[in-house]
Design a protein around this nucleic acid. Structure first.
Length: 275
DNA sequence: ATGGTAGATATTCTA
C-alpha cells in the first residue's frame, strides 16, 4: 500500500510588523491558501503575539520567537507543529532570526526552518560597517551548520527573508547593484555556498520561474511608483533538500500584495509540494 | 549626487 500523499502549500512573508498588518494576513490566506506560513520581522514580543486573531485565520498551530521592536520570526500552521529545540544562537546575539518546526505527515516527518538574515546596513564593507560584518558572519555560520549535517535527515524546507538576491536576474540591474548591499559578490557567493550545503538545496521558485526571467520579492518603500520603476530584488526564498525536488508542484510570488493597503515592502512567496 | 518611505520607539534606530 502506498502511503497517502498530502498537498502542502508553504509560504514565506516578511510582514514588517505582525500587529500593524494583521488584516493583510487574511488577504494572504484568501490569495494563496497556505498550510504553513513563515513570517519574518514580526517586531512583537511573544506575550503580545496576536495568537487568537491568527487562529481565526485557520492557523491553530504556531511557534513564535519575537522581541520588542526588531526582528522576530514565527511559523503558523494548519497542521500540528513540534518545535525543534537546541537551535544555534547565531552570532551569539539571541536576536530572534531563526525558528524551526517539524510537521508529522503521512509520508514521514518534514522539517521547516524559517530564517531572517540580517539586512546588513548601507555600506558593503565589513571593516567600516558592523551590520555588514554581522550579515556575512551569520551566513557563514549557517553554512557551517548545514555543512556539518544539520539537514542530512532530508525532507527539509528552508524559507525566509535571506536579504540576498543571489542571481543577476534577481535584481533590476545586476551592474548597478554590484556594490549595493544585498547583491555584492561577497554576499551572493556566500549565499550560493550556503545553498550548496545539504546536498544542494533546490531553489523552489527558480525551478518554476527559471532564469533568465527577472523575479523580485521586494520593492523599496522609497520609490514613488514601485510598479512603474520596478526596481526590485528577490530577497525571499524557499529552498528544499534534494529529496523533495520531485515533490515540488508549483511556486509563485504574490506580486499584487505590494499594492495592498498599507503594504509590506516584501511580498509573499509560495511553494506547493505533494509529500 | 542625493534623498526618497515605513515601523517601533522615544526624541533615533533599523530596514
Amino acid at each position: 500500500m502506498p502511503k497517502r500523499r498530502t498537498r502542502l502549500r508553504i509560504a514565506t512573508w516578511n510582514i514588517n510588523s505582525v500587529r500593524l498588518r494583521l488584516a493583510r494576513l487574511g488577504d494572504l490566506v484568501a490569495a494563496l491558501e497556505p498550510d504553513v506560513l513563515c513570517l519574518q520581522e514580526t517586531k512583537t514580543p511573544d506575550e503580545l503575539f496576536p495568537r487568537e486573531e491568527i487562529a481565526g485565520f485557520g492557523f491553530r498551530h504556531m511557534l513564535v520567537r519575537g522581541m520588542k521592536g526588531y526582528n522576530g520570526v514565527a511559523i503558523l500552521s494548519r497542521l500540528p507543529l513540534a518545535p525543534v529545540d537546541e537551535l544555534p544562537d547565531w552570532c551569539g546575539r539571541d536576536d530572534c532570526r531563526h525558528i524551526a518546526a517539524d510537521l508529522d505527515l503521512p509520508g514521514g516527518p518534514l522539517r521547516i526552518h524559517n530564517f531572517y538574515v540580517p539586512a546588513g546596513g548601507d555600506i558593503p564593507d565589513p571593516e567600516a560597517n558592523p551590520k555588514f560584518r554581522h550579515k556575512l558572519d551569520f551566513v557563514s555560520e549557517a553554512t557551517l551548520w548545514f555543512a556539518a549535517g544539520a539537514a542530512d535527515r532530508g525532507r527539509t524546507v528552508l524559507a525566509g527573508d535571506l536579504n540576498i538576491a543571489p542571481l543577476p536576474e534577481d535584481v533590476w540591474s545586476h551592474r548597478q547593484l554590484l556594490d549595493v548591499v544585498s547583491h555584492t559578490p561577497v554576499e551572493t557567493e556566500g549565499l550560493l555556498r550556503w545553498q550548496a550545503t545539504a546536498g544542494g538545496w533546490v531553489d523552489a521558485v527558480r525551478e518554476i520561474v527559471p532564469v533568465p526571467q527577472k523575479l523580485f520579492t521586494w520593492w523599496s518603500y522609497r520609490n514613488r511608483d514601485w510598479r512603474r520603476s520596478d526596481r526590485g530584488r528577490r530577497l525571499d526564498h524557499v529552498w528544499l533538500t534534494p529529496d523533495l525536488r520531485g515533490a515540488l508542484k508549483g511556486a509563485m510570488v504574490l506580486k499584487d500584495a505590494r499594492d495592498w493597503p498599507q503594504a509590506s515592502d516584501h511580498v509573499p512567496v509560495l511553494a506547493e509540494l505533494v509529500v
